[in-house]
Every structure is written in C-alpha cells, then in structure tokens.
C-alpha cells in the first residue's frame, strides 16, 4: 500500500465513523437528514419539512427529560 492509499483508506474510515450515530444528537442529525432527503428528492411535501423537524426535536427533548426523571 502506498502512502496515498493509506491516507485514502483513513479518510474513508473517518467518513464512515463520522456517519455512525454516537449519541442522541447524532441520532437527531441523522433523522433531520432523512426528513430533508424526503423533501429534497420529492417524495414528501416540502412545506411539511420544518414542522417535522420541530416535532422530532420536541419529542427528543421530552424523551430526554423523561429519562432524566
């Protein structure tokens, strides 16, 4: 393996690693991306996008509160 191949591999691994949800904030980021994807690619109405994001955050914060209790 050349040095460049090594770098490439490391970059791909890093890319993979940053894509894996690590905590509830990563999980939420992934959810938001999915909401955006549905609306950007046309299977969902774009007007519902922000409402869905607010709902997702609201639910996550409430769940966090319950877990703390």
């Amino acid at each position: 393996m050349t040095l460049l191949d090594d770098i490439k591999q490391q970059l791909l691994d890093a890319e993979k690693a940053v894509s894996i949800p690590q905590d509830r904030y990563h999980e939420m980021a992934r959810k938001l991306v999915n909401i955006e994807r549905q609306s950007f690619y046309g299977d969902e109405n774009d007007r519902n996008r922000l409402r869905k994001i607010r709902e997702a955050i609201d639910t996550a914060v409430k769940q966090g509160d319950l877990n703390e209790v």
Binding site: V18, I57, A60, V61, G64
Partner: peptide, 19 residues
C-alpha cells in the same frame, strides 16, 4: 432545553461536514 438541544445537533452537522 430546545435551544440547547438544537445547538448540539447543529454542532454535529457542522463537525461532520468540516471533518
């Protein structure tokens, strides 16, 4: 709480893009 949560999600997205 909502502001803080949103801020942390914002950071995740920002750092993913920057990395």
């Amino acid at each position: 709480d909502l502001v803080e949560f949103s801020e942390k999600v914002e950071q995740v997205l920002k750092s993913t893009l920057a990395d």
